[in-house]
């Protein structure tokens, strides 16, 4: 058929070549196309619902009858002082969570990796992720007991050590709030988060360690020059992906600890959306906030991915 058209011999050639390439890879396509369609159905199709963000959506009316309001919902968000405060708090808390989360999980995995006794290692590892299975409400309850001013363990300890002379109302002071949230996250998730690093470490070729030992490298050198580089791709990938979640600082801890005294620092975007969107039945506002978060997320991963490619020569996409 193509031969009948002498005007496009080159294009035809290219076309043929492409076709050949595609046919060579048809098994790859076969493995991935169904899932791309699948993802399209479950993840992209519902995005038509983003139309709500430009409406005054009422569940009773549906997409077609709800009035369009243009960018009013976004305008409400961006004009609202509380939203920007929530934005700041979210950024601060998720940055702290990110830093502490990575440092503690990786540090813990490194130390655990040094333990030679398998049973001890497995026991420690099992226990370390137990807090992950507790709901925030339980963990927060325990924390507020520990931080209590009346016979709370933490105040007692500090007083016994002579660091303070009267109990401090930890949960009532805005300046401690972000730290408490970060600590709570570390407590609950360090063990769980370290699992992926342990898995990555287990794939490091042992011959590298042997070689290092022959060169006279000690434990710390092995950690620094073999183990850490070994899990570096994992760290980077997780870091980039998690930077995309920078506006998801969660809301449960902040909600559970967020009393009036610390409200200025405790409210996150999710809480703001809960209060002014979902609870008031304003789905349009919630959707608008969701779109805002998506835009920031994608901006974040594109940037970090670019930087990571420049600096570390490791890209996510």
């Amino acid at each position: 058929m193509t031969e009948l058209n002498p005007a496009l011999p080159r294009a035809t050639k290219k076309w043929k070549k492409t076709l050949r390439l595609y046919s060579q890879q048809k098994s790859l396509f076969f493995m991935i196309l169904p899932w791309m369609i699948f993802t399209f159905i479950f993840n992209y199709l519902p995005l038509t619902g983003w139309i709500m963000a430009f409406q005054n959506f009422r569940p009773g009316k549906g997409y077609w009858k709800s009035p369009f309001v243009g960018f009013d919902q976004f305008a409400f968000l961006f004009r609202e002082q509380g939203f920007w405060r929530a934005f700041r708090n979210t950024l601060a808390m998720s940055t702290m969570n990110l830093v502490f989360g990575f440092v503690f999980a990786i540090g813990f995995a490194l130390l655990l990796n040094e333990i030679k006794n398998t049973y001890f290692k497995r026991t420690v590892q099992t226990i370390s992720y137990l807090p992950h299975f507790l709901s925030w409400i339980i963990v927060c309850g325990l924390i507020s007991n520990i931080l209590s001013t009346s016979d709370g363990a933490f105040n007692n300890l500090l007083m016994w050590l002579g660091i303070i002379d009267k109990p401090i109302l930890w949960l009532g002071e805005p300046k401690y709030f972000w730290w408490i949230v970060a600590f709570a996250n570390v407590w609950k998730e360090t063990g769980w988060n370290s699992i992926i690093y342990l898995a990555a470490m287990s794939s490091i070729d042992t011959s590298l360690y042997e070689a290092c030992e022959i060169d006279g490298g000690n434990r710390y050198r092995k950690m620094w020059h073999i183990t850490l580089p070994g899990i570096r791709p994992t760290i980077l990938v997780l870091l980039i992906m998690n930077l995309g979640f920078i506006l998801n600082a969660g809301f449960e801890v902040q909600y559970l600890f967020g009393r009036g005294l610390v409200m200025d620092v405790s409210e996150t975007i999710d809480i703001f959306v809960l209060k002014y969107g979902i609870t008031l039945g304003n789905y349009s506002l919630a959707t608008a906030a969701g779109i805002f978060k998506s835009v920031i997320s994608i901006f974040m991963i594109v940037t970090t991915n670019y930087l990571s490619g420049k600096i570390e020569d490791e890209r996510l996409f």
Binding site: M36, T39, N43, Y44, P46, L47, T48, G49, W50, M52, P59, M241, G244, F245, Y283, A286, T287, G290, K293, S294, S297, I298, I301, L316, F317
Partner: peptide, 15 residues
Amino acid sequence: YFLVTMYVSAGLIPN
């Protein structure tokens, strides 16, 4: 294509 889906969500009602 896959990565984007991680960061966009339609919300409860569209889903």
